[in-house]
Simulated scan of single mutants.
Amino acid sequence: MVSIPHVLSGISIILLTIYGVDVIVGGGGAGEGFLPFDAMTRGIGFGFPPIILSFIAFFMSRNPPYKGLGIMLIITGILIIIGGAISMSSAGESENTARMAGEGGGLIAVGAIIAALGGIKIKKSLSN
């Protein structure tokens, strides 16, 4: 069954995938991918909304047990963790090393929280 939380989680995965592919194609540089944005604009437009949408999807679906939604949240969390790890690994190449490392660590933590929420959703669906 497709519900609003599933749609929100799907949008999150799509936005993170677009973000990741743009970073890979452009090498992380401003306007070098297929999106004409700098790193901050790209992060605000394609990185921040999936985080918010994932939390909304989890809390909207508190009562019904959605195993599929749990899997989607875990995928979203993993994509965010990968983005944080890439951000931390590229911090050594940047003049803003401390800021980039902090942002990468924050992304890894948020990704882990979202993946954990997905695990909780799966566990609840299996117990019902």
Rank of each mutant, 00 (worst) to 15 (best):
M1F: 08
M1P: 05
V2N: 04
V2Q: 07
S3H: 06
P5M: 11
V7M: 10
V7K: 12
L8P: 02
S9G: 14
S9C: 12
I11D: 10
S12K: 01
I13N: 03
I13A: 09
I13E: 01
I14K: 06
I14L: 13
L15S: 13
L15V: 11
L16R: 01
L16A: 02
L16Q: 02
T17C: 04
I18S: 11
Y19E: 14
Y19M: 12
V21D: 12
V21P: 08
V23P: 09
V23D: 07
I24V: 12
V25D: 03
G27L: 05
G28M: 05
E32L: 14
E32N: 10
G33C: 14
G33H: 08
L35E: 14
L35W: 10
P36V: 06
P36K: 09
F37N: 15
F37I: 11
F37Y: 14
F37S: 09
A39L: 15
M40L: 12
M40D: 09
T41C: 09
T41V: 09
R42I: 11
G43W: 06
G43M: 07
I44P: 03
I44H: 05
F46N: 04
G47H: 08
G47W: 02
F48H: 10
P50V: 06
P50E: 08
P50T: 06
I51L: 10
I52C: 09
I52T: 15
L53I: 09
L53T: 06
S54G: 10
F55S: 04
F55L: 13
A57S: 13
A57L: 08
A57F: 11
F59Q: 04
F59L: 09
M60I: 04
M60L: 11
P64M: 02
P64F: 05
P64W: 13
P65H: 06
K67D: 08
K67L: 12
M72Q: 01
I74Q: 05
I75N: 10
I75H: 08
T76D: 12
T76R: 02
T76G: 13
I78L: 08
I80H: 01
I80L: 08
I82D: 00
G83S: 03
G84M: 00
I86L: 07
I86H: 02
S87R: 00
M88I: 03
S89E: 03
S89W: 05
S90E: 00
S90L: 03
S90T: 03
E93C: 13
E93T: 09
E93W: 15
S94V: 04
S94A: 08
S94C: 12
E95W: 07
A98L: 14
R99P: 00
R99L: 08
R99V: 12
R99G: 01
G102W: 00
E103A: 01
E103Y: 00
G105N: 15
G105S: 14
G106L: 04
L107C: 08
L107V: 04
I108R: 00
I108P: 00
A109S: 15
A109R: 13
A109G: 15
G111L: 01
I113P: 03
I113H: 15
A115N: 03
A116G: 12
L117K: 00
G118T: 07
G119D: 08
I120K: 10
I120V: 12
K121Y: 05
K123M: 12
K124M: 05
S125W: 07
S127N: 15
S127E: 15
S127A: 11
N128A: 14
N128P: 02
N128I: 05
